[in-house]
Amino acid sequence: MEASAIIFYCIAAFILGAGILAVTTRKIFRSAIWLLFSLVGIAALYFWLQVEFIAAVQIIVYVGGIVVLIIFSIFLTQQSGKEMAKPSGKHVLFSLLAVLFGLALIYNLISEYGFAEQASRPFQVAVGEIGMQMLSTTQHGFILPFEAVSMLLLAAMVGCIVIAMKNKSGNLEAAEPPAGKLMIHSDFTSSTTEKEA
């Protein structure tokens, strides 16, 4: 067995192990950390597959963005150190059965299919090429999905702000202070405006 194969199996074991722990641990913060490890393992897998760009994007978006977001939401919604309720035995059993059957089915399909291996062709991912193709308007260009995704991101951003704002309008105390100035309470704001006037 070659060294690269050994590395692959190590990475695979790490990803799956961390993934299993992420869905089974009953401490929510640990679950997020295991998810993080699983995602980092997937980034390592991308490095192994020599798609460094995807690996870097994976780390930036998933680790730097999504997991931090998840951890923040845990900070905001969870009481420290409380364990989650244990799922009922019946629940676990049937979930496990469904998952195992699904796994068996797909594994069967994969092993039966016999992919046409096209070895020995170089696989190069030049960052410049990704950029070129992303913005090209020719037949194999990706400008349309790129724009669509940009619109989606914009919509998501607006949506997040709207969702977060809705609750705040009625609740003045929780509102963020207006930019640059600090709101203390009513008599303060009134007197500062007097002073400015």
């Binding site: 993934g19 992420a22 869905v23 699983s38 939401s73």
Partner: peptide
Amino acid sequence: LFCIGMYGLFTRRNIITMLMSIEL
């Protein structure tokens, strides 16, 4: 990994952990 995520989605009752399973 997909099956692990599915298992998590089935067994968890906490939205944040369900979201994590979806990410997986």
